[in-house]
Simulated assay, not measured.
Amino acid sequence: MSSQSPNPKPQVQPCRYKTGKVLGAGSYSVVKECVHIDTGRYYAAKVINKRLMAGREHMVRNEIAVLKRVSMGHQNILTLVDYFETMNNLYLVTDLALGGELFDRICRKGSYYESDAAELIRSTLSAVAYLHDHGIVHRDLKPENLLFRTPEDNADLLIADFGLSRIMDEEQFHVLTTTCGTPGYMAPEIFKKTGHGKPVDVWAIGVITYFLLCGYTPFDRDTNLEEMQAILAADYKFEPADYWQDVSNNARDFIRKCLTIDPTKRLTAHQALQHPFLSEDKEETQADLLPVVKKNFNARRTLHAAIDTIRAINKLREGGVMDGALSIAPETQKDTPAPQNETNTGLWRKPTGGLMKQ
């Protein structure tokens, strides 16, 4: 009989990274810039607060499993470089995407054409097809999860945030029944809880395409209930007409075929890549879409910020807990201990599965 303990103590290792400025924050985590002490290379560290994630640790394990399977396999997918944990936090070290979010980049451009939107969707769909070929469904595709690798004009667009992704068995379809994602980008079958799979990512691509061509989402409504009802019925229009007058029929047809209620009749990612909207050369006399897109985007961002504030105030008055869906970052910052303090101790615990090689 072995004298070894069934639960050996985690291996303690010296710190390999030094963290820097905050790049972003979420409900359970904060993303910080970090540098590898030995190589001097810069990365992004997703710092996940263990206490806030109590009972949800499987989400982190799942994200690591997904990223390990697809990292370095496609130029448009964020690469997982390392992962480890300390007493208080879990760390996922990834590529450092310094080019910013998709729509912020568009709004800073001097001009923006349908061909630009098509190129962005082509890059995203190429990565989605790669994920699907490897049995992975992302489940949370939206502009906020699309980042540019560098500030250069020709920088790669990267799919990030695989926290809601799932690894699926071969061609099993009715596998996932958990409601997840961001409401405006969720497919009808997610709300119905009848089972969903890879087609939900293509639906999200349809919503993103619509958004990239006009600056607002097709199912944008005053309440979550109205939004869900619109999604279930695929109730959207290419209106107002003056916002869509410079958008081609091919682009509209692409959106329609992505926003098909029946997932079995929806385009697959590979089929979508062959659609004329993405595969044909654009006319050289395209109109600049930037003025309309930028105006609509800024107007809706202001409106939704006001709505979120009102909802937050109402929740506080009711004595309820703040909804994680609201954009209130300070509580995250307060609850997430700065890893810099732990770095100074020089002690890092090695998680089950070990450290990934550089």
Rank of each mutant, 00 (worst) to 15 (best):
E101T: 10
D104W: 04
E144D: 14
L98F: 09
I121P: 08
D116P: 04
D104R: 05
S111I: 02
E144P: 11
T150C: 02
L102T: 04
A127L: 04
H138S: 04
H132V: 03
G163I: 12
F162I: 12
I106F: 07
G100N: 14
S123R: 13
A117S: 04
T94G: 05
G163R: 14
I121S: 02
L164Y: 11
D133Y: 06
R149P: 00
C107V: 13
R108P: 00
D116N: 12
R122C: 02
L158P: 12
L147R: 10
G110S: 12
V137Q: 03
A155H: 07
G99I: 13
K109E: 11
D95P: 11
I136R: 02
K142T: 04
L141C: 02
N145R: 13
D161F: 15
F103Y: 10
A127I: 08
D116K: 03
Y130W: 06
R105V: 11
L125S: 05
L125I: 08
S126T: 02
I167W: 08
T150E: 10
D116R: 01
F162S: 09
D95G: 14
V137T: 09
D133V: 00
L141D: 04
D153P: 01
V137F: 05
I106T: 09
I106M: 05
P151N: 06
Y113N: 01
I136V: 15
A160P: 08
A160F: 09
G99E: 10
A160I: 15
L157Q: 07
F148R: 01
D116T: 03
P143W: 13
A117Q: 03
A129D: 13
L146S: 04
D104L: 07
D116C: 04
I159N: 05
A160K: 10
T124L: 15
R108T: 12
R166H: 13
G110A: 09
L147Q: 09
L141A: 06
G135S: 05
E152D: 14
A160L: 11
E101F: 13
I121D: 02
C107I: 14
N145S: 10
G163E: 12
N145Q: 13
A160H: 06
V128F: 02
H132L: 04
S126M: 00
K109C: 11
L120E: 00
I121M: 14
A155L: 10
D156V: 00
L147S: 04
D140H: 11
G110H: 12
K109M: 15
L98M: 15
F162V: 12
A127P: 08
L96S: 03
L102N: 07
A118T: 09
F103M: 14
E119C: 03
R108S: 14
H138I: 08
L96E: 03
R166K: 15
G99K: 09
L141E: 06
K142D: 02
S126L: 00
R166G: 05
A129W: 02
P143L: 09
C107G: 06
V128D: 04
L158H: 06
A155Y: 10
Y112M: 00
F148Y: 14
A97G: 10
Y130I: 01
P143I: 11
